[in-house]
Write a protein that binds this DNA or RNA. Structure first.
Lengths: 202, 202
DNA sequence: CGAATTGTGCATCGATCGATGCGAAAGTCG
DNA sequence: CGACTTTCGCATCGATCGATGCACAATTCG
C-alpha cells in the first residue's frame, strides 16, 4: 500500500515542484497576481517558463495552486482556530494568527487572500473571482462555527452568528490591509485584544 | 478679484479635464492602478493618449490626481465625519460613510485607497506608496481627533486614542474588502452598529 | 493678415506581457 | 543497443504595455 514511487518514464524533473510553488507563492503574496510577471515568477522559482507551463499549466493555475498552498501553509491557523473549544477562543486565535501571518518579519506583509487580486483588469478576473470565493468560504465557515457555538450554549441565544462572523472577518481584513502598509504587530495585537473585550457584542 | 478667466493663447481643449478625471477615477477605482491600462483609461475619458499625457503628465500623475479627486469627492465623508461633536459620532459617521461609499449600487464597489494598489509590481510601486501614505494620513488624523476628544472630556482619560483609531480604521478597511467582494450594505451596517455598541472599548 | 502658442490625430516606438514550437537531453523499457 | 517518453534550453510568437514624434488644426496676439 505504499505511495506510488515508481519512476515515470522519461527525463526526470530537474527541480522540486513543491519548492518552486513555495517561491511562486511568495512572489504572488508580495506583488499580487497582476504585479507578478512570469519573468519574476520563474526567476524566483529557478525554472524556465517552459517548465512552469509544463508543470503548472499557466499563470492562473499557478496562482490557484499557490493559493491552495497558502491555505494549507501560512493560513493554516484558520483551520486550527476553528477547532478551538469556544467561540471567543476561535475569534481570539483567528485574529492572533492573522496578525502573526500578516506581519512576519521575513516574508511578505499582508494577506494573499486580500492583496492577491482585490481589484484587477480583465486579465486578473479569474484570480479576483477565486479570492472572492476564498474569502466567502472563510466567512461561511466561521459563521457556521458560531452557529454551532450557539447550539452548544457556548454563545447566548441572542448572539448573531452571521454578525459576529462579519465582525471578525472585517477585523481580520482590516488588519491585513494595515499590515500590508507596514503597521506593526504590537499595535495590531493591542487593537485586536480590545476589539474582543466586549465579545459577543450584545 | 475674479478667478482668472482670460483665455490662454493657443487651441482650446476639446474636453473637460474635470469630467475626464472623474472617468479615470472610476476606472482606477474599479480595476486598480495596474489593472487600469492606458487604453481603458483614455477610452473611458473620451480622449487620446496624447491629450492625456499633455494634460495630466503620465499614468502615475493621473492616478495621483484621481486620488485627490476621490478624497474630495466620494471620500469627503471622512472630513465631514471628523467634524462631528463627539468621538462616537465621528466613528459612527466614518463607518456609515465607508459603507455607503463602498457599496454604491452604481459605481465601483470597495475603496480606492485600499484596492487601488495594495500589492503591486515595480511599475505600481509609486501608486502603492502613495496609498500607504494616504491611509497613514487617515489614521493619524483620526488619532489626533480622538486625542482631542480625550482633552475635551468627551472620551474618558483611560481611553486610548491610538488604539481606537486603529480599531475604526481596521473596521473601515475590513468593510472595504468585503464590499469589494460584493457583500451587501445592510449586513455591513448591522455589523458596524454592533461594533460601536461597546464604544470606547474600555 | 501673419506669427506665436497650444491641443489633437495618427502612427509608432522599444519593452514587456503571457504563452509556444522545436529539437536536444535524460531518463525507462524491451 | 534502439524505441519510447518526458523534460529542458533557446528562440520567438502576437498582443499589449506605457509613452512619444510630428504634422496639422484652432485659437490669441501683434
Amino acid at each position: 500500500m505504499e505511495t506510488d514511487k515508481r519512476r515515470p518514464s522519461g527525463r526526470p524533473r530537474g527541480f522540486d515542484p513543491d519548492a518552486a510553488l513555495e517561491r511562486a507563492l511568495l512572489v504572488f503574496w508580495e506583488h499580487g497576481y497582476e504585479g507578478a510577471s512570469l519573468a519574476t515568477l520563474t526567476e524566483a522559482m529557478g525554472i524556465s517558463t517552459t517548465s512552469m507551463y509544463a508543470t503548472f499549466g499557466n499563470k492562473e493555475e499557478l496562482f490557484r495552486k499557490a493559493l491552495e498552498r497558502y491555505t494549507e501553509g501560512p493560513s493554516a491557523y484558520v483551520a486550527r482556530a476553528l477547532e478551538k473549544p469556544t467561540a471567543l477562543d476561535v475569534a481570539t486565535a483567528l485574529l492572533a494568527g492573522t496578525i502573526q501571518t500578516t506581519t512576519r518579519p521575513t516574508g511578505p506583509h499582508g494577506c494573499l487572500g486580500v492583496q492577491g487580486a482585490l481589484a484587477t483588469g480583465d486579465a486578473g478576473r479569474g484570480a479576483r473571482d477565486l479570492l472572492v470565493d476564498w474569502r466567502d468560504d472563510g466567512y461561511s465557515t466561521l459563521r457556521d462555527r458560531f452557529e454551532r457555538a450557539v447550539d452548544d450554549g457556548d454563545l447566548p441565544p441572542e448572539a448573531d452568528p452571521a454578525l459576529l462572523a462579519r465582525y471578525v472577518t472585517a477585523l481580520g481584513y482590516g488588519i491585513a490591509v494595515q499590515a500590508a502598509g507596514g503597521v506593526g504587530r504590537d499595535d495590531l495585537q493591542e487593537m485586536a485584544d480590545a476589539a474582543l473585550r466586549s465579545w459577543p457584542l450584545l
